[in-house]
Design a protein around this nucleic acid. Structure first.
Lengths: 165, 165
DNA sequence: TGTAGATTGATGCAGGTGCATCGAGTGGGT
DNA sequence: ACCCACTCGATGCACCTGCATCAATCTACA
């Protein structure tokens, strides 16, 4: 229980940290250079666009995106400010509300996916064979399930317009 | 050149993003609960402690840690504020300076490694066999070399007190 | 019904990050 | 010696995050 981490585990840890920040940086940089907002916005827009009638309770969005409550709250503020979503009252629970994606939001999400998917291909797809990508996913999954309920919900439904981070 | 990313690549990307943020969160949480500062401080202290005579130019530190210049500058401010390092003038280049780790800094680095290594064992070591950790490292390396000069320098020298992120 | 406790979402504050820019200092070419 | 381009490190600004806390509302249960 107090074992020292193996050199291999430590080395994997180091690479996990370095490589993901590196790759994420590259992808975000590409998106930014194309004039798009941060990836978090994309994730939120995607979740909203996939929801029935394009609306979600903030609380749902929060759970989908695995980000803290206050973070969701402010992200919604920004989306609303930019006209990508709007708040709608929730009649069944007056504490709550619904957030609905606008046409502009849907359109931005689709345009971002173009740049996003290209970046994924550039920084991941072109570096790994499909088989290796599968191996990598498998190994990562084992780590993920480690610390708490790993929630990787949209994985099954990855399709043309689907991915998010 | 304009290929669409494979489902496998996309799925690997999603997991890479989710799993690392999840695992990193867990580790940082453990350290924070033990009353330690953020991991970035540890990294800096480690680099300094490994440098000959415990001092580095900010510019070196920056290159070791792969973080932007302004970030290094402010991290050093914080370390100095906490008495973990001190600035020393650089006689050979009056633009520059040296940052030297203090005894307190060395001591904190060692204490953090205790908690840090335990966390790595808990969230990585215990989830993967050595063989799988090696496989994971290999796959990640291929991704890393992707976007720019991947600099994973301290990897070779991983030993008892070594790891960083 | 009444009330305690949980849930929803917002916000003030402190701190961290990215970006642009600055002033000081160096070094190479003329 | 001079100048220009470059490097080094700091800093003002906007924004983003984490934390703690708040008010409003809902729910469960006595």
């Amino acid at each position: 229980m107090k074992r020292k981490p193996s050199t291999e585990a430590t080395s994997a840890w180091i690479r996990l940290m370095r490589v993901q920040s590196r790759v994420l940086d590259c992808v975000e940089q590409d998106l930014k250079k194309a004039g798009f907002p941060p990836l978090a916005w994309y994730d939120a827009l995607l979740e909203l666009s996939r929801a029935p009638s394009g609306e979600l309770r903030p609380v749902e969005l929060e759970r989908q995106m695995l980000i803290p409550q206050y973070s969701t709250s402010r992200l919604i503020d920004r989306l609303v400010d930019e006209g990508l979503a709007c708040r709608r009252e929730c009649k069944i629970d007056k504490r709550g509300q619904f957030v609905e994606i606008t046409e502009a939001g849907r359109e931005l999400q689709k345009r971002m996916w173009g740049a996003y998917s290209a970046a994924i291909e550039k920084y991941v797809g072109s570096k790994l064979s499909d088989a290796d990508a599968v191996k990598l996913s498998g190994l990562l999954d084992r780590l993920g399930c480690a610390c708490g309920e790993m929630k990787l919900p949209p994985v099954a439904s990855v399709n043309e317009t689907t991915p998010l981070r």
